[in-house]
Amino acid sequence: MGDIVTIKGLKYGLQLTFAKGASFDDVQANLLDKLQSGNGFFIRGTTVFVPKGYFAEEQNEALRKMFHRHGMLFSTELKRPNLAPPSRDTSTKASKAKAPVEEAQKMMVINHTIRGGQEIKANCSVLICGNVNPGAQVIAGGSIDIRGTCRGFVHAGAFGDKSACVVADRLMPAQIRIADLVARAPDEEFKASQAERAMIKDNQIIFEPVAR
């Protein structure tokens, strides 16, 4: 017997299709199971598409709430959401040019320390009120702002945005990546004494002090 819910990866999200004859309750229970099992499919910020008109409006609303609780977006229309990676085909139309601006303004806020082995992934920028400990990973489509000490692995501008930067009260990551550039910590120990910003200049990642 096939699965009640089938997940298909799309360019901008996940498309859900359902087995014939499955009731809404079965579908909802099955999805909740999948969400809580923590498999790699349901990354925060992902958009989930359900065919329009498949479920009643209030049922869609229930699904929307459930996905929202798990940090995901829900849509019945197959289109590129604002959260998608920066588009390379930005046309001159004002309405289309608005999308990347909105996206850059979006920010994920995390209000705790990211410990070793934990991973934060976001299409937008990330603000972390806490430390990023050694062994932790933060990967963001936009910039990363850490109100604390950064000792982990950070990747800003993961979709190739070279204007992204990483700011931290004490910036001493094991490895830092911005867009497609990589820099690593020096082999000898060092202690950052003030807030710094890492950014790309002349095709190199540089650190510069910032006032906070």
């Binding site: 705790h112 410990r115 070793g116 082995g117 934990q118 400990n133 062994g135």
Partner: peptide, 12 residues
């Protein structure tokens, strides 16, 4: 210390 950090995360 690294393992303790991971464990504290798991406990959370």
């Amino acid at each position: 210390v690294r393992d303790a950090d991971k464990i504290i995360g798991e406990l959370g």
